[in-house]
């Protein structure tokens, strides 16, 4: 064959006969996930004067609002309430925002999915990734606040990278699961919006499990039973314990949080990979 030298295939094709597994596929496309994260951040803050600063300004302003509300309008007895609140609110915002944006991500990229063969998990995962960037950046004003109100810094803060990792693993799993469910039933999106609203009050964000006291009506017992299985009961202390209480989270908390996170990711990824070939018929 009189092949043009310039046209000779640069990389000799050494493709394995076996089809790549879903995890290999994701590893091959890891750069795509990174680029999608960058794209999301670029597009989100495009043409805004402050750009990425908004990720830090946002929790800062939120903090001001909550501090005013809980010091003057309805004072709370909690010492340094703003740190107490923010140390739980920031991880919660990370989880809930990633989930709400991520469950829509397969639908949002349907034009692409119809035309290019790509492991679809990259879309929900990149949404989690861009929210992870936001979450990490929002820890900067939290540190500023801690300095401002004289909150003690302890060695327990060194645990935070593990906390962030577990939160990210958990959020990824749940987001994958809900993203595939949304393709088949659009109702999931609206339902999740309401459920998240409820879950926030049923999770130790505005309060702490230890503050619940000993009321014993039947519905309060039910609430306490729910708290015992609610993954947020274990995931939120991962951040709040080091930041507010200046202590390492207990072994029980870490173990249950890790079990929830790994379980969520395994189930979420397996279900997503199993169902994603059928997505295209439902887009």
């Amino acid at each position: 064959m009189k092949a043009d030298a310039e046209l000779q295939l640069a990389s000799a094709p050494t493709v394995a006969l076996r089809k790549p597994g879903p995890i290999e596929d994701l590893i091959k496309f890891r750069q795509l996930i990174l680029m999608l994260v960058v794209r999301e951040l670029k597009v989100r803050y495009k043409r805004s004067v402050l750009g990425l600063l908004w990720t830090m300004l946002n929790p800062l302003l939120l903090m001001v609002v909550y501090t005013i509300v809980f010091t003057t309008i309805m004072p709370s007895g909690q010492h340094n309430f703003s740190v107490f609140l923010l140390s739980a609110l920031l991880p919660w915002i990370f989880f809930s925002t990633a989930l709400m944006q991520g469950l829509n991500s397969v639908l949002a990229n349907q034009e692409l999915i119809r035309k290019v063969r790509v492991p679809q998990a990259v879309f929900p995962l990149s949404v989690v990734g861009s929210n992870l960037v936001n979450f990490t950046l929002s820890l900067v004003p939290l540190v500023a606040l801690m300095l401002g109100v004289g909150q003690p810094f302890s060695a327990a803060l060194l645990f935070l990278p593990i906390s962030v990792l577990l939160l990210t693993v958990f959020t990824s799993g749940i987001t994958l699961l809900f993203a595939t469910a949304t393709v088949f039933f659009r109702d999931v999106k609206h339902l999740t919006e309401v459920l998240l609203q409820m879950l926030m009050y049923l999770s130790p964000v505005l309060y702490d499990v230890t503050q619940l006291g000993g009321k014993s009506s039947w519905w309060f017992n039910m609430f306490r039973d729910f708290l015992a299985v609610n993954p947020m009961t274990y995931l939120i202390p991962l951040v709040r314990d080091p930041v507010y209480y200046a202590r390492f989270p207990s072994l029980l908390v870490v173990a249950v949080a890790a079990a929830w996170s790994i379980g969520a990711l395994v189930v979420g990824f397996a279900v997503f990979v199993r169902l994603s070939p059928r997505h295209i018929h439902h887009l």
Binding site: R39, K42, V43, K46, E111, L112, R114, K115, V116
Partner: peptide, 8 residues
Amino acid sequence: GAGFDPEL
């Protein structure tokens, strides 16, 4: 240009 993002 199936994967093009108009904003980028």
